Amino acid sequence: MRFKNVFSIIGPSMVGPSSSHTAGAVRIGRVARQLLGCRPKEAKMTLYGSFAETYWGHGTDLALTAGLLNYDTDDERIPQADVLAEEAGMTLEWVQGKGNGPHPNSVKINLSNEGRKAEIVAASIGGGTIAVYSMNGFDVQITGEFPTIAVTHSDKQGVLANMTALLSQEGFNIGYMDVDRKGRSGDAMTVFELDSAPGESTIERIHHLPHIKEVTMIDLTKRS
C-alpha cells in the first residue's frame, strides 16, 4: 500500500476529465521526461488495460503528451498538448500492448533524443497517484510524490554507503531507497526519495563518487 496518499481521496489540482486517466498520466509523462533529462524527440507509448481501451476518449494521450512537455496536472495547455508537441518537433507513437500490464492503467514509455534514451513502466493507480515500476530496465519503484534521485552505477562494494553518507552529510533525509542490479558486479540503479530536493552541487558530488555512471533528478513537486 506504499503508493496510497491523500490524492486517492481528494485528487490533485488538474485539468479533467479523469484523475486516473488525466492527472496520473500527466505525472507519468513528467517522470519519463525528467528521467531522459530533456524534451524527447521520439516517444513511443505502449498502453495496457484500460489505458489501451479508452485513451482517446479519456484524453490519456493528451495527458501523457503534456507530461512529456513537462506540464503540470493543472496546466491549461493540456487539451492542446498534441499540437504543441508537434510544433516542438516531437514524434509520438501509440501502441496497444498485448497481455496485461502491472495495473489496469499501465503504460511503457520509450523516449529518445540524439543518443539519450529513457524507459519507464508505470501506472496511474487512482486519484492522480502513480506507481513507477521500472526505469531504464531496472526494477526500481518510486511514487513521484517526493524529490527523487535516480543513480546508475556499477555494483561495487561501498557505492551505496558512499551515496547515503554524502546525502546524510548534506542534511538530506532518505524517506525511501530501492536498488536493482543486472548481476553481480554489473550495472545497477539506486533510487532515493528525499524529504527535500537537493541542489545541483549535491547532484554533482554524487556524480563524482567512484563507480557512478549517471545521476538524474526527478522532481514532480517543482512547478514547470
Rank of each mutant, 00 (worst) to 15 (best):
M1N: 12
K4R: 14
F7Q: 03
S8N: 15
I9E: 15
S13L: 11
S13I: 04
V15S: 12
V15I: 13
T22D: 11
A23S: 05
R27D: 00
G29I: 12
R30F: 00
Q34S: 02
L36M: 09
P40W: 05
M45F: 15
F51M: 13
Y55R: 05
L64D: 08
T65Q: 01
Y71D: 05
D72Q: 06
E76M: 12
E76Y: 10
E76A: 13
A81N: 01
A81R: 09
V83Q: 15
A85R: 03
L92I: 01
L92W: 03
W94K: 00
G99E: 06
N100C: 14
N100M: 15
P104A: 13
V107N: 09
K108R: 14
I109F: 03
L111H: 03
S112F: 06
E114P: 01
K117F: 03
E119A: 13
I125W: 04
G126V: 12
A131H: 13
F138Y: 09
Q141I: 12
G144A: 12
F146Q: 09
T148D: 05
I149A: 04
A150H: 09
V151Y: 09
D155I: 01
N162T: 09
A165R: 10
L167Y: 02
S168F: 10
N173G: 02
N173W: 08
Y176N: 11
D178I: 02
R181F: 01
D187V: 10
M189H: 03
T190S: 10
D195N: 13
S201N: 11
T202R: 08
T202E: 09
E204W: 01
R205W: 08
I206L: 10
H208V: 05
V215H: 11
T216H: 10
M217Q: 07
I218H: 08
D219L: 01
T221R: 15
K222M: 09
